[in-house]
Write a protein that binds this DNA or RNA. Structure first.
Length: 747
DNA sequence: CCTGCATTCTTTTTT
DNA sequence: AGAATGCAGG
């Protein structure tokens, strides 16, 4: 046991060995959070305080769950299979499969992913003749999910206005449709599971007695419903509540926009009477300057639980800042810098390019590509979300559950079978009359549509018959041929990759079966449900690990969100401009600006040794050149931590151009810093935007007869329409037509 | 039923 | 700019 606790610092040790009671661990970035979580489980097991079956480990991503299991396996020679460790959704799915009757679901219930759900909503609106201009499907989807994630069924939603009353009604209809079709969307997995626990006493008691230790990762990301779910599982308020061990960091809460409630941390502390909150503040990742910058940034947020990271690693290098004239120059400079790092011995995979939004990756990719620097972009379309895969899965879903109308409509005419919108409308109408699923309605049909659609139903029936006795992967293989999907993509010009993906689906099925059919070891329970349904659930819940394709040593590109939890020797945070980061849609109210700030905090704390902040004075966005000034977050970083590699010509009055370049100054780290700081002096003067601004440019100080002195923030249009945005300080920020306003360049 | 053009809308993302 | 959807015409 002592071995387990070796090398833990005081706080980590204290957290791991806490008595089994409600605990809140505030774990700063890079403070060994995952280590504490897994060591805690190992310690509970090894000291005999817990059996594997009594442990419930909850994460948000499959990746995190997998990592927990891997690390546990390395620590203890135990069978981790007896424990329930998984994502909220995965665990709820497991529970609902086991008690599908009590949860009023068909045994083969299918899971709708976000796109399926949207399709289902559109279909509903059409069937009910609802104007989708007045009730945009996406908005309705958001409304439904937000309510589910707050724990509200339609009856519980307060509707004060006509509009909301209608949306509640649609929410109700939507639920009814899902129930009829035997499908469940993501938030429904949780809500259903929660309701099952609250309504069914024996089942509730069963799980409450079983899970004595509940460990929750990334607690700051929980939404209301997830909190309620944990609360009921832990038998909160009962005499013998389970011990919840919650680990989180309020400063890294960056999912407020999708319903995460940081407030759950405070509520947890209060409602569960957490005796003492343990703070993990020693950072093992970043050098001092990087941490100082991070601390300084996050200090501007209000309502923090309070935490200050420190390190004993020394301050390290200054943070390098580069301001480029355009986004293309920004990308080019970054690529040169990366090439220099690589020449100095860095490996490309230890270098990350982070950006606020995905749209920014293109310019960077172009530069990397044309320079022949290998790179990998994270966060594209995932395997199970590809259209050919979704088509194949739709056939499989129909085999498992013919009432799945979404799946039916997806493939009834794909590949084309001469079934048009007209026939389908007819079918949908009579399905409403008979109150049956589309599939079940087909026999009632007469006339021409009947034969075409009847043929489709016969095809599915034949598939079902032919695959009855086959193992899973052969079922998949079989439907790829009999559905005509393979033939379809073979005929398509660009179909080669899709065909390969379909083959990969067969492999995925084979792999899935091997995993699933592993002999059931002692202390392990068999999972519920038939292999096909389980495979389909797996496909919905784990849309595909793009992490899988390791490949060569490549520079890592991703959004800041995607970078949470990761770390790199060198990190470039790109596009650090007002309007981009913070994003313009989040600049105006305090709550969302604070989330942007946390996002910046997350970004900064990804770096181990070297951090770059880069920005561009102009960039193409939505097909238009936009001009921006440096991010307001620069003001929050102590000037002494920054090394400007470009002259500072910036907004703010009287800001004199200061050149940050001072030779050397930094010490060397990690072996790949052979050349001091900036390899070569770079072009210093920002170029004038290639637009006639009458000798003006962004950042230019100007004088206006009425508004006084100001600085140009942005420009738009050209010729007679050319407008500039100027910050006149106390006189405000104004857009002025260049042709009308008499502006005099000063400074 | 398919094809091509117009219109729209673009943060972040996991399940 | 570019993707993705929706609608008119072949």
């Amino acid at each position: 046991m002592s071995k387990l606790l070796e090398n833990l610092n005081t706080e980590q040790h204290a957290a791991v060995t806490l008595p089994p009671q409600a605990a809140l661990i505030l774990a700063g970035a890079g403070s060994g959070k995952t280590r504490v979580l897994t060591t805690r489980i190992a310690w509970l097991l090894q000291t005999g305080q817990a059996s594997p079956a009594s442990i419930l480990g909850v994460t948000f991503t499959n990746k995190a769950a997998k990592e927990m299991l891997t690390r546990l396996g390395a620590m203890l020679p135990i069978n981790t299979r007896g424990m329930w460790i998984g994502t909220f959704h995965g665990l709820c799915n497991r529970m609902l499969r086991a008690h599908y009757r009590e949860a009023a679901l068909p045994q083969t219930f299918q899971i709708l992913d976000t796109a399926d759900q949207l399709a289902a909503i559109k279909r509903l609106l059409k069937a009910l003749n609802v104007d989708d201009e007045k009730f945009p499907p996406r908005e309705l989807q958001h409304f439904i999910n937000a309510n589910k994630e707050a724990g509200y069924r339609p009856q519980q939603v307060e509707a004060w206005d006509e509009y909301t009353r209608k949306r509640v009604e649609l929410y109700h209809e939507y639920d009814a449709q899902c129930q009829k079709e035997g499908v469940v969307d993501f938030p429904e997995l949780l809500l259903r599971s929660y309701e099952l626990l609250s309504r069914n006493e024996p089942i509730r008691r069963h799980y409450q007695l079983r899970f004595r230790h509940i460990l929750v990762d990334e607690f700051q990301d929980t939404n209301r419903l997830q909190y309620l779910w944990l609360k009921i599982l832990a038998a909160h308020g009962a005499e013998q509540p389970a011990a919840i061990f919650a680990v989180g960091d309020d400063d890294q809460s960056i999912y407020g926009f999708r319903g995460a409630e940081v407030g759950n941390m405070r509520d947890f502390e209060r409602e569960f009477h957490v005796a003492s909150v343990i703070r993990l503040e020693q950072n093992y990742r970043s050098h001092g300057n990087i941490l100082d910058a991070a601390n300084a940034i996050i200090a501007n947020n209000s309502k923090r639980l309070g935490k200050n990271l420190w390190t004993d690693q020394g301050s390290g290098e200054p943070i390098r800042v580069y301001e480029a004239p355009t986004d293309i120059d920004e990308g080019r400079w970054i690529v040169e810098e990366i090439q220099q790092l690589v020449r100095d011995g860095a490996s490309r995979s230890d270098v990350a390019l982070l950006y606020r939004s995905n749209a920014q990756s293109r310019v960077l990719e172009q530069q990397l590509f044309s320079s022949g620097v290998p790179y990998k972009v994270y966060g594209g379309l995932r395997f199970f979300e590809r259209q050919e895969i979704k088509h194949a899965l739709a056939y499989l879903r129909l085999l498992a559950n013919p009432d799945d109308d979404t799946a039916f409509l997806r493939v009834v005419n794909f590949p084309t079978r001469g079934i048009g919108a007209r026939s389908l409308e007819l079918l949908q109408d009579s399905a409403r009359t008979f109150n049956t699923s589309l599939y079940a309605t087909v026999p009632h049909l007469s006339g021409k549509p009947a034969s075409a659609i009847g043929g489709f139903v016969r095809l599915i029936e034949e598939m079902r018959h032919a695959t009855e006795e086959l193992p899973l992967y052969e079922i998949v293989d079989h439907i790829l041929d009999t559905s005509g999907l393979r033939a379809h993509y073979r005929a398509e010009r660009e179909g080669q990759e899709r065909l390969e993906n379909l083959d990969e689906l067969v492999s995925a099925a084979r792999y899935f079966m091997n995993e699933a059919d592993a002999p059931v070891a002692e202390g392990e329970e068999a999972q519920h449900g038939d292999p096909l349904s389980r495979f389909l659930a797996h496909a919905s819940l784990e849309a595909g690990d793009h992490q899988a394709e390791a490949g060569q040593d490549a520079v890592q590109l991703m959004t800041v969100h995607a970078a949470k939890g990761l770390e790199f020797d060198a990190v470039f945070i790109t596009g650090v401009e007002d309007g981009l980061f913070p994003h313009e849609q989040s600049m105006n109210d305090i709550a969302s600006l604070e989330e942007e700030r946390r996002l910046m905090y997350v970004a900064v704390t990804r770096a181990r040794k070297r951090l770059y902040l880069t920005l561009a004075q102009s960039r193409m966005l939505h097909g238009q050149t936009r001009y921006a000034i440096k991010s307001r977050f620069f003001e929050e970083i102590p000037e002494g931590l920054l090394k400007w590699l470009t002259p500072r010509v910036q907004a703010g009055f009287g800001a004199s151009a200061s050149y940050g370049q001072r030779s050397g100054g930094s010490s060397s780290y990690g072996g790949w810093n052979k050349s001091p700081v900036s390899p070569k002096p770079r072009e210093a003067m920002p170029q004038q935007p290639s637009r006639d601004l009458g000798g003006l440019r962004i950042g230019q100080l100007v004088r206006h007869a009425k508004f006084g002195d100001g600085v140009i923030l942005a420009a738009e249009g050209s010729g007679a329409d050319a407008k500039v945005q100027i910050n006149f300080g106390s006189a405000g920020v104004k857009w002025l037509l260049l042709s009308l306003a008499k502006l005099e360049a000063i400074g």
